[in-house]
Amino acid sequence: MESIKQRLSVYEQRTVCRMATLLDPRFKKSGFQHSSNAEQAATCFENELANFPVKETASNQPVAPDSSLLDTLFDFLGERSMNKFVNSRVDAILTKKQYLERAIVGQDIDPLLWMKVNQTDFPAIGSLFAKYLCIPATSVESERTFSKAGQIISERRTRLKEKNINILLFLNRNSWLK
């Protein structure tokens, strides 16, 4: 275990790995060996959320007060909501806090499925999931593809068309993996 910790601790300092660990609802901040790396990941997470383009939804847009109720006692509330200032940094801090305070899910839960279920609670985090959790954990699959390409494309088979190579490499993938 000590050897694994030493070998993998380097990855904890890389931004992409930090973000992927923090975004995974099975780990969040508890997935880090060093708390300083967890805090740096949270800061990076907040910055990404603050720079995320905000989509205006019906709930974010102020509703104009009904003209028949203009002379009521509560007109000031309508005016305040119309003049409400949106601050992306504050929204990012609140979203980060809400996400990190949610309970860590079980190890058998698929993070992408979890995000699909919780998309309405965290719409900005969904794009970060797509950005950071789509990266394969290993390069085994790509190595297999390169190896297979080396077997197909040789000095004797230099006249293969690109279309045929793609068919051999990518469309028949399931047949040679089994």
Results as ranks from 00 to 15, higher is better:
36 S>V: 15
124 A>R: 15
45 F>L: 04
140 V>S: 13
126 G>Y: 06
92 A>I: 04
83 N>A: 04
107 Q>R: 11
55 K>L: 14
68 S>V: 06
140 V>L: 09
112 L>G: 01
100 L>V: 13
29 K>L: 10
91 D>L: 14
105 V>R: 01
168 L>C: 10
103 A>N: 08
81 S>T: 08
44 C>N: 05
118 N>G: 07
91 D>G: 09
2 E>D: 11
114 W>E: 03
103 A>Y: 08
14 R>T: 11
132 Y>N: 02
98 Q>L: 15
142 S>L: 07
82 M>C: 06
57 T>M: 04
162 E>C: 10
99 Y>G: 11
32 F>T: 01
81 S>F: 12
166 N>R: 11
100 L>A: 09
8 L>H: 06
63 V>I: 09
111 P>G: 03
144 R>K: 12
145 T>K: 06
153 I>V: 15
19 M>H: 01
151 Q>S: 13
68 S>L: 02
138 T>H: 03
114 W>G: 07
23 L>V: 01
133 L>T: 00
148 K>N: 03
160 L>Y: 09
171 L>A: 06
22 L>K: 08
159 R>T: 13
32 F>I: 00
126 G>R: 09
164 N>F: 09
105 V>A: 03
98 Q>K: 13
5 K>L: 14
122 F>A: 09
93 I>Y: 09
106 G>R: 01
163 K>G: 05
160 L>G: 13
167 I>D: 07
133 L>D: 04
84 K>D: 08
114 W>F: 09
119 Q>W: 15
173 R>W: 00
85 F>M: 12
98 Q>G: 10
168 L>V: 04
41 A>V: 02
70 L>K: 07
47 N>R: 06
173 R>S: 01
19 M>G: 00
104 I>P: 00
90 V>C: 12
118 N>S: 13
170 F>P: 02
21 T>M: 08
130 A>L: 12
57 T>F: 05
50 A>F: 12
24 D>L: 00
151 Q>N: 11
65 P>L: 11
32 F>R: 06
5 K>V: 15
75 D>M: 15
175 S>W: 13
20 A>D: 01
8 L>F: 08
69 L>I: 10
96 K>A: 11
163 K>D: 11
36 S>T: 11
171 L>P: 00
168 L>D: 03
148 K>A: 06
15 T>C: 07
11 Y>C: 07
111 P>Y: 04
101 E>D: 14
117 V>G: 10
24 D>Q: 02
108 D>F: 13
21 T>G: 03
124 A>H: 09
65 P>N: 03
117 V>I: 15
66 D>E: 05
94 L>K: 14
7 R>H: 09
110 D>N: 13
115 M>A: 10
68 S>P: 02
128 L>T: 05
54 V>H: 07
29 K>G: 02
167 I>A: 10
155 E>H: 10
114 W>D: 10
130 A>T: 11
3 S>C: 14
97 K>Y: 08
47 N>Q: 10
